[in-house]
Amino acid sequence: MSIEITGVSKSFGPVAALKDVSLSIAEGKIYGLLGRNGAGKSTLLNIITNRLFADSGTVLIDGEPAAENDRALGKVYLMSEKHLYPEGMKVANVLKWSRHFYPDFDMDFALTLAEKFGLNLNKKVKALSTGYSSILKIIVSLSVNVPYVLLDEPVLGLDANHRDMFYKILVERYSLRPATYVISTHLIEEVAGIIEDVIIIKEGEIIRQESCEGLIAQGYTVSGNRTVVDQFIADKNVIGSDDLGGLKSAYILGTLDRGAVPADLEITRLDLQKLFIQLTA
């Protein structure tokens, strides 16, 4: 059981948004879909859910083509930036209609979440602030009970407390009812501990897909006196560096031979955000 994306390309006029993207999204894992603005994250998620049509390539959901296939698409929920609800609709009715579209929708859970977040059920969708608009979409996403939930910028406009609540509820929900979650976000540090696999997209191409822990373990940071650092990194795969006067930190991909490190150099781990910044610069 998986979503298999094979050779998907998509252009908007002269702009190639996705270039021959192939990707496998397995069942029951939390993925981080990371990319800079305009890298093609939303385009990819919209193609998976048939909201946009690929110029070429295929998307299979549990072995079935996704395009124009209600049964396959019923297994996937996309929380996107845009609201698809009529603006005059009340929050309570959004939840009610979600149950019509997703037979396994958990209304009790949705109402519990609405109370936890303080979402007013009688408000109209258009009257919600950016934060509460995200909260409504989060609540629907976590209540639909489908095997694949794609979250495009889920915490947009949420304050720190609500973001923390969301991460905790997501982890709890995932523990009790494992499903696949693909989280596209710019707040990398906040999700670094939650995501199991990372997908990094750059200018329409997938440049990395692997376990988060595995990716981080592939590199290290070396810091110290600039001359000594420069000597040490001369024959290494340097993905970036920061200078501060005579001090230098260099980010290296590759395995470290601890014995070969000069005593006055400090070796530290790469963190996901730094690695991401260097890989997508």
């Binding site: 905790k168 995932y174 939650i194």
Partner: peptide, 15 residues
């Protein structure tokens, strides 16, 4: 439990 630990620290249950 691992569930309690993962919720408390916002980490993946597998971790």
């Amino acid at each position: 439990s691992t569930t309690e630990i993962s919720i408390r620290y916002n980490i993946n249950p597998a971790t």
